Simulated scan of single mutants.
Amino acid sequence: MKQFPSLALTAASILLSSHTFAQQQLNKTAFMKAPESVAVYNNYYYIADIGEGGDPTKKDGNGIIFRMDKKGGSTIFAQGLDAPKGAFVLHHTLFVADVDKVKGYDLDNGKELYNIDLAPASIFLNDITALNDSTLAVSATDVNKIFLVHLGKNPRTEELVYTNPINGANGIVYDAKSKRLYVCGFGNDNKPDGQLGYIDMGAAEKTFTTLTGRLGYYDGLALTANRKTLIFSDWIAFEKKGVILELDLASGKITTLNKEGIAGPADFTLDAGDIITPEMMAGNVLKYSLKK
């Protein structure tokens, strides 16, 4: 059992939500073991499930990607993976981070199109986002790094060099207009000392700049369509205490959105204003409809 983290607070206040957050469990049956990430495409949710045991670095071949409709019915989209995480769709391809590889699957038929090996640089590749039509950014939680994956006929990888550490680099999302690569960290050595910040990808010397002094076990990260707000998740503890938070980029104000704790709010997605998040420790996928 982990203890609650000590939170370092800046002038940006932590407020209770003024919204009503309706929660719904989407899966009708207990078909998942340890869902870590969700991506949405053509009215389906693609769920990267680490598999029995929930070990994010173990090469055991029991990882599965499920395809679930919005009524909770599911089929197996791809199987035989090890510990898939970081589901992301680009060019009709579903990319996942699978231990030390980035894999890509054709969304029509589940055929594997990419299997890009980053070993031995990392054994805990985590989240994925796209910088452009041919470049992915992938977080590596175990080594506090971010790698760039250049797609094409002969894919190549490189480390993104930046100053200031990102403790347990995890959630990652890119804003092409501001050229900000937003990143949050899960922390190091089982400590909730992960930070939330960004890297200016347009700068000659790249630095990780924090946006708040609040620390946590940060996991999922998304930018809202209006580019004014970041949504991110904090496990708080390794039990049913997780929260989903909203950061106003202009004011720095942080709002807690959910009332009931979540058992492992991992890598969520936004779907037409709804937040679709795995509840990793309970084997569920939850939907939160934000109504003002």
Rank of each mutant, 00 (worst) to 15 (best):
L286K: 07
T209D: 03
I146Y: 09
T229P: 03
L81D: 10
T209V: 14
K59Q: 15
Y105H: 05
D82N: 13
H92K: 11
K28W: 00
A87R: 10
N258S: 09
K253H: 04
V173W: 05
S17I: 01
G54Y: 00
D234H: 08
K103L: 13
S122P: 14
N43H: 12
M280A: 01
G194T: 08
V96H: 13
G220Q: 10
L249M: 12
G152P: 06
L113T: 12
I254K: 05
I65R: 13
Y217Q: 07
M280C: 00
G104I: 05
A203T: 05
T269P: 04
G273M: 05
S251R: 00
M280E: 05
A119I: 01
N164K: 11
D200G: 07
G63I: 02
L196T: 13
L131N: 04
M281H: 02
T20A: 08
V138M: 09
K253N: 09
A78W: 02
P35E: 05
A204D: 12
G185R: 12
L160I: 13
R214H: 12
L125A: 14
Q25M: 03
L211M: 11
D219R: 00
F66N: 07
L151A: 10
D133Y: 03
D219L: 00
I231V: 13
V243Q: 13
N42H: 12
S74R: 08
V38M: 09
Y46L: 08
L151G: 08
I123Y: 08
G72A: 03
Y44P: 00
D82G: 00
I123W: 01
Y218T: 02
Q3C: 04
A8N: 09
E260F: 00
G152D: 11
N27E: 14
D106P: 00
G72W: 05
L181T: 07
I172N: 11
A203M: 08
D175M: 08
A282T: 09
K228V: 00
E260Q: 11
G63E: 10
A250P: 00
P192G: 14
D175A: 04
A272Y: 11
L26K: 05
T269S: 08
T157E: 03
Q24L: 12
G216W: 01
G252W: 09
Y41F: 15
N27T: 10
D106F: 01
F31G: 05
I76Y: 05
S178A: 03
